[in-house]
Amino acid sequence: MNRNGLFALCFNALFALFMMGPLIVVIGVSFTPTGYLEFPPSAISFRWFRAILDNPDFIDAAWISLELGLASASLSTVLAVPAALAIGRERFRGRDALQALFLSPLTVPTVVLGVAFLRFLSLFDINGTFVGLVLCHAVIVTPFVLRLVLASVTGVDRSIEMAATSLGASHWTVFRRVTLPLILPGVVGGWVLAFITSFDELTVTVFIVNPSTTTLPVRLFSHITQTTDPLVASISTMVILLTVLLMLAVNRLYGLDRLLIGGEAR
């Protein structure tokens, strides 16, 4: 086996440190007993974790973010899978335009999107509502789902579907029994990426929330514009912890490599 040399090891270690550094600082700060951001903490204290319980508006915001992530990731997946199947394998007029349309939210500056959504939702009088948030987030996260599903669609051997058809399967049965299981890594991967993107979306969301639909990122943002206490650090630590637990669970159930890099089904 080809082992890394000393230089490569140092490089990799520095790279990992660079990636992990901000997280380490945030986690460190969250354990401080002081009332300001202090790193490294002078002592270990759970003061700011207890403080989370005294601020139910953060917990409410976390629930809204969670529900928003689930709803918008699912909605965009439902839209992106048929789109990816059409774009990935059919040749039709307007195919490139359709793909560009689906991917365009990536290229438009998010601030511009936020202003646009604000105006658009007001027209239909749903600005600030949860439904409005879900629709906007679905638009933002669809490119991520589409790209991952597209990648797995192009990897599917068409003759596998032809084989199913020749054995008597209808279009819907071919999709349900053959196509969907084969593109599932892309679909699940896209959904997870969409969920994460929606969960921490801030720039667009600040334009379109109202006090009853404030998401966690927006709540944190408005908190740190007013004070600089370590509450944001302890909440961030909780989010990191939940993310790690989620990833561990996904890894256990499904395999992270397959999710993020893609691979053979089951």
Binding site: S159, G168, S170, R177
Partner: peptide, 30 residues
Amino acid sequence: RKRGLGIVFQTYALFPHMTVEQNVGFGLEM
């Protein structure tokens, strides 16, 4: 799908997520 022909493809086109028995039984299931 209603022609009832048996086809063997160049790439074999087996269903990778099914066992051999499930593969062979697919047409009967349909």
